[in-house]
Design a protein around this nucleic acid. Structure first.
Length: 469
RNA sequence: GCCCCCAUCGUCUAGUGGCCUAGGACACCACCCUUUCAAGGUGGCAGCACGGGUUCGAAUCCCGUUGGGGGUGCCA
């Protein structure tokens, strides 16, 4: 039987990073088996069915490079779901129930037992219509066991599984049923999803059997991804949208690499690997069981390494959204390809995410520098800064405007010579110049930057700074 | 409350009964390099939750405790 897996996100406005990992594992399993990766958008809840949210999923998937073989929208299969519900009803596996939530709760309280539905309408022979919902009759005895590649065989006593609703009173089919129907009809062989679905899996299995689905799929419930407080990442309090990381300048291949590592690592334990390597080495049974923390610090470290490993041309190409695109902090005409090309290698080894690039070169592209108050104050503190700037201004008006490593380095030599005479070490001598010219206390190497900036602009900025002293 | 899951450095993990005085990575600290910041180099800190078993031998197997998490909808 050909391997067929599915990734079934519901449109919530963005693609959740945890979902990306789930999609990745599914995709890898499909690719290594030469099977099919099905993208199934579970949009049956109207509140989550906004068109742009649906296309947002496609875009996000494309960005990370997880291509699908089939794409379905659950909402388009409503008739299939309804037909399945009818089959269940015809087979006597369901019954109509018009108990209100409050009644169910009240009875549970009286009973003193666990909350949940008590089977009140089971044998009342009620019909559809009004507030009636269709409930699935669950077994009172026995155990439903989930055979799970990563969890073993968790067993659930059937007595603890309430008669759950499969069709709402408004006629809409519930998620579990739609899920099972789609999985059966789409020939899904492996259900790889987040651990939070484990508790509903017995219901899934019961329905699967009731619908005559044949051999159930192989399950793999992946450990959840948690925040620093060890809670499942939530869209309300945690930065979970893949788009956020994309706009911050994380590389898609790094996102995949890092996410893969939460829950799985290659046999040899190395941490950096490509998608192709993962396809070659991944095994579902090697997936870990414990929840994993989404550590942005580590993601950043991986990203910085990956950026540095890029050929410069590619680095430059990948920077375009922040240089000439919508994420650039300046108008398109401010960008100068030549200027950036001169700085690119120096910038490349200093950023961890691409969104940090503009701040590294803005002083070269913008006509006015905004000088950071604190940085300037710190750099300008020593008494000797005023005479230093005076003498540098004088010297640099004459000196050859170049910086040649290992040979003559006129800019550098003159600055440090002046600094020496005034009792300022190299660190303190370059600081006021850097702050005056670039606006910040950190940035790419100073003399290289000045060469690109040019004599006139450099001297202008130094004069302006001298005047502020 | 009830059901289910989980438990190795701060974090992600390697480890599947002797190879473990527990390895790597990120973070952190120190030093080196150095025109800032990075990068790089060297070194360091730091862990098998606890208690019982099983065994010649347990991070590895079993039971319990504790701690954490998930689920418990006419959401997906």
């Amino acid at each position: 039987m050909p391997v067929r897996v599915r990734f079934a996100p519901s449109p919530t406005g963005f693609l959740h990073v945890g979902g990306v990992r789930t999609a990745l594992y599914n995709w890898v399993v499909a690719r290594q088996a030469g099977g099919a990766f099905v993208l199934r958008i579970e949009d049956t809840d109207e509140a989550r069915n906004r068109e742009e949210w649906v296309t947002g999923i496609d875009e996000a998937m494309r960005w990370v490079g997880l291509d699908w073989d089939e794409r379905h929208r659950q909402s388009e299969r409503a008739d299939r779901h309804a037909a399945a519900a009818e089959r269940l009803a015809a087979a006597g596996r369901t019954y109509w129930c018009d108990c209100a939530r409050e009644e169910v709760d009240a009875r549970a309280r009286e009973r003193g037992g666990p909350p949940g539905y008590d089977g009140h309408c089971r044998d009342l022979g009620k019909g559809p219509g009004g507030d009636a919902a269709l409930r699935f009759r669950t077994p009172d005895e026995g155990t439903t066991t989930v055979v799970d590649v990563v969890r073993g065989e968790p067993a659930f006593p059937n007595a603890g599984i309430e008669d759950f609703v499969v069709v709402r009173s408004n006629g809409k089919v519930m998620f579990v049923l739609a899920n099972v129907v789609d999985d059966i009809e789409m020939g899904i062989t492996h259900v790889i999803r987040a651990e939070e679905h484990l508790p509903t899996t017995p219901k899934y299995l019961l329905l699967w059997e009731a619908l005559g689905g044949g051999a159930p799929p192989v399950f793999a419930h992946l450990p959840v991804i948690v925040n620093e407080k060890r809670q499942k990442l939530s869209k309300r309090r945690d930065p979970v949208a893949l788009e956020l990381y994309r706009d911050e300048g994380y590389l898609p291949e790094v996102m995949l690499n890092y996410l893969a590592l939460i829950g799985w690592s290659p046999p040899d334990g190395r941490e950096r690997f490509t998608l192709a390597e993962m396809v070659a080495e991944f095994r579902l049974e090697d997936v870990g069981k414990s929840p994993g923390f989404f550590d942005v610090a580590k993601l950043r470290a991986f990203n910085g390494d990956a950026i540095r490993a890029l050929p410069v041309e590619e680095f430059t190409a990948r920077c375009q959204p922040w240089l000439t695109g919508p994420l650039a902090p300046w108008p398109p005409e401010a960008y100068d390809e030549q200027v950036f090309a001169a700085m690119a290698p120096l910038v490349q080894e200093r950023v961890a995410v691409l969104s940090e690039v503009p701040a590294m070169v803005d002083f070269l592209l913008l006509s006015d520098v905004r000088v950071d108050e604190d940085d300037w104050a710190r750099a300008a503190k020593p008494e000797a800064v005023a005479p230093l700037l005076d003498r540098v201004l004088e010297a640099w008006a004459e000196v050859p405007w170049e910086h040649v490593a290992d040979e003559r380095e006129p800019l550098k030599d003159s600055l440090f010579a002046i600094g020496d005479e005034l009792g300022l070490n190299r660190k303190r001598a370059q600081a006021p110049v850097r702050a005056a010219v670039t606006g910040r206390s950190v940035g790419p190497p100073l003399f290289e930057s000045l060469v690109v900036l040019g004599r006139e602009r450099t001297l202008d900025r130094l004069r302006a700074a001298r005047a502020r002293l």
